[in-house]
Amino acid sequence: MSNDDRAIASTAAWTPAPPPLPAGFEAELATLAPVRARVPMKQLAALIGGSFVYALGLVFLLDIRDDLGEMPRTWIISVGAAWLLGFVAPVYLALVPRRGDVLPRWQLAVLVAGVASVAFVVLGLAIHPMGPHSVAYGAAQFGRGHVCLEIGLVTALVPVLIGAIYLRRSLPVASRPVAAALGAGGGCLGGLVLHAHCHVADGLHVGLIHGGVVVVSALLAAAVVPRVTTLR
């Protein structure tokens, strides 16, 4: 064994004795009250349920798109299912840890959020059927799409808020990726609401605005939510 190895082995074997619990802590333990531990699956169910009710309310408040009956049924169902999956998958990964872990699967969550962000932009640019009652803004009126962006973000607000409350001061690490996943999930719910409401069907609008909601929502959540969820 070389000197380096002996030095490292020696340091590995050395375990200093920790100090006793401070007196203030002992006083706190004397009045220790039971608390309800986090139940991730229950939280997930409440987040999904609450967000759906809110999203449905928004769709009925904003009206269903005029051209819905003119769209191919396969497209309506498959894209709707994709938005739904894009909502559920990242929030599931952001809230529910692997069995035996306390912290959520942030690496997978942020990966799914990233894939959703890119996929919905590309999907919207590539596949955007139009009917007689559909509207096309095109590049010239692209800026008018800000209303859809706002609707999408307002929809995303509720799942992100619920997720942030459930994860409040619980993440010592990886707060930002978890927040981004919550944001992407919320953005996909926003996309689902727009899928049912917005009759602007040109590729730029559907791809960059409807898909862009996922990206903007993920970025905004990553910037703001860690202030609430980081355990400091």
Binding site: A37, P40, L231
Partner: peptide, 20 residues
């Protein structure tokens, strides 16, 4: 340990608390 104490409600029952 103070943070562990304050955040104990965020613990998930059945999980290993050591890595956390």
């Amino acid at each position: 340990f103070l943070k562990v104490h304050r955040a104990r409600a965020t613990y998930v029952l059945g999980a290993d608390p050591v890595p956390w």
